[in-house]
């Protein structure tokens, strides 16, 4: 298996009339962790949404393994897990059901695999309660279990540790490090740095435009 590579060259993005990203460039290879920082409204979420292809850049390209991500969006998305700042869960379903439906669309997944991922993110204590009864931090743990279950090389996480307690922060750091050890790439927008291994960590600092 060849190492993966994600790059962006001088991305310019407009949101309405605002020029949010002005020439953002980056490169990440297998094992790298790319930390996106910046004040509120600096364009962290816009950058992540541009990287996953939800937002189109005005100029500049994002390339996955050398290929423009919009050239074969389906193949790119099949290798990508995106976690927005809201946890994408159905309030009327239990965490187990949520993951069964959400991950099942991407790949065949068994009940034991789901149980293992929920246990890993500390969510097995409430795996069969409706999501509407869970706290924001508990929902975040379920959403993180979904990212783990996707079993893809590229993770794009928007504030992955939001709502989580101190132990949760450490958990996110461990998950990120394991993903990198397996040759994956992690890109995360954060306010507080994640507790990850120092080697292979790069930073993109965005400033408010």
């Amino acid at each position: 298996m060849s190492a993966h590579r994600l790059s962006g060259d001088s991305l310019h993005v407009f949101r309405g009339e605002r020029h949010v990203l002005r020439g953002v460039s980056f490169v990440a290879e297998g094992g790298d962790y790319l930390e996106v920082t910046g004040s509120n409204g600096a364009g962290k979420t816009s950058l992540l949404r541009t990287i996953v292809g939800l937002v189109h850049a005005e100029s500049g390209r994002v390339r996955w393994n050398g290929l423009d991500i919009h050239a074969d969006a389906g193949a790119f998305h099949a290798q990508l897990a995106y976690l927005g700042h809201e946890s994408p869960l159905k309030a009327d379903l239990t965490p187990r059901e949520n993951l069964h439906f959400a991950i099942g669309i991407r790949r065949r997944v068994g009940g034991d695999e789901i149980a293992r991922a929920l246990a890993e993110t500390g969510a097995n204590g409430f795996a069969d309660r409706p999501v509407r009864t869970l706290s924001a931090g508990q929902r975040r743990r379920v959403a993180l279990a979904g990212v783990v279950l996707a079993a893809v090389p590229l993770w794009v996480l928007d504030e992955p540790a939001t709502h989580l307690d101190a132990e949760g922060h450490a958990l996110v750091g461990r998950l990120v490090d394991r993903q990198r050890a397996e040759g994956g790439i992690v890109i995360a927008a954060v306010h507080a740095p994640l507790p990850v291994a120092g080697a292979g960590t790069r930073r993109i600092g965005l400033t408010l435009q």
Partner: peptide, 18 residues
């Protein structure tokens, strides 16, 4: 609202089909 459509669009499956 809950981000499910976003996940559908990024699932690698055909959004039209979903």
């Amino acid at each position: 609202q809950d981000g499910t459509l976003e996940q559908y669009a990024l699932s690698g499956r055909s959004l039209t089909w979903l």
